[in-house]
Design a protein around this nucleic acid. Structure first.
Lengths: 152, 152
DNA sequence: AGTGAAATTGCAGTCAC
DNA sequence: GTGACTGCAATTTCACT
């Protein structure tokens, strides 16, 4: 289990992974060693899964982001597995969630422009049989860009 | 503009921000200084927006993740602005997108359990007037967890 | 301008207490 | 938990192409 100091460390690191151990120690009124060991423990025990640089999507030319709701025809385990395997191979798909409700999957897709997106839908997505229905929602604006998880 | 070496650096750093400059240099057959300069340039010019530690959602007790499609009653600029201001104040909301299609917004919500989620919907979300309809899709499984952007 | 080599600073990681 | 110590990476300077 983790205590409040650990939680503070998680909050700080998920907002800025470049904080040095010293800086974190200053903020939490602790010396470097305990901070260092706590971070290592949080990494080993899987609370911190990875460190990543965030890239500006539009800067790298991916001006389009789209959420697609997808429903399948067949829901047997083998069909599910095949769909998930297929969908992951497309690099335009940057996230895929199996959801409950009126649709089966929600996927997050990025593309350079509408042509590329059209190509993804009509060539790649359409090549997967078992898809019954696709509903695209284009992102017009990111009101709140993913900051991280709320940690109490 | 960025060249193929810059793109390789972006790809490496978005998969693992802890890579040292030396390691990157080895992978790309370059010495430390040019890698260092390029990274600084990518940071200054906004290609790299930040560095973050990724936290395991379930480890920190947030077992529920839900996507909510929301449609509004009023679409005048002032109503839009108010909704966006209100929705951002809830820390359960970890992302919010203004979308086109049958709904107006897609929000990503996390909660400890169903009680907390119910409380969010019935107390917090319901306190915003101007909401016409909310449709929740519970995430049952993350098939492809956000890896980063496809960089060519 | 961009590269590689050398020198310096400061942090990561270890140890004694 | 604190404080001192070591090694190495990050960062700066410089010569070269």
């Amino acid at each position: 289990m983790i205590d409040s100091v650990d939680k503070s460390i998680l909050k700080l690191l998920q907002s800025d992974a470049k904080l040095t151990i010293k800086e974190i120690g200053n903020k939490l009124n602790l010396s470097a060693t305990p901070i260092f060991e706590r971070i290592k423990r949080l990494e080993r025990s899987g609370y911190i899964t990875s460190y990543k640089a965030l890239i500006d999507r539009k800067k790298v030319g991916l001006s389009l982001m789209v959420f697609c709701d997808i429903s399948l025809n067949q829901h047997h385990a083998s069909h599910i597995a095949k769909f998930e395997k297929d969908i992951q191979q497309f690099n335009e798909v940057i996230a895929c969630y199996h959801i409950g409700g009126s649709f089966d999957y929600l996927i997050k897709v990025v593309a350079k422009d509408m042509d590329e997106y059209q190509n993804f839908v009509s060539k790649k997505l359409a090549s997967i049989d078992n898809i019954r229905k696709v509903q695209s929602s284009f992102v017009m604006r990111e009101v709140k860009t993913p900051i991280g998880l709320p940690i109490n």
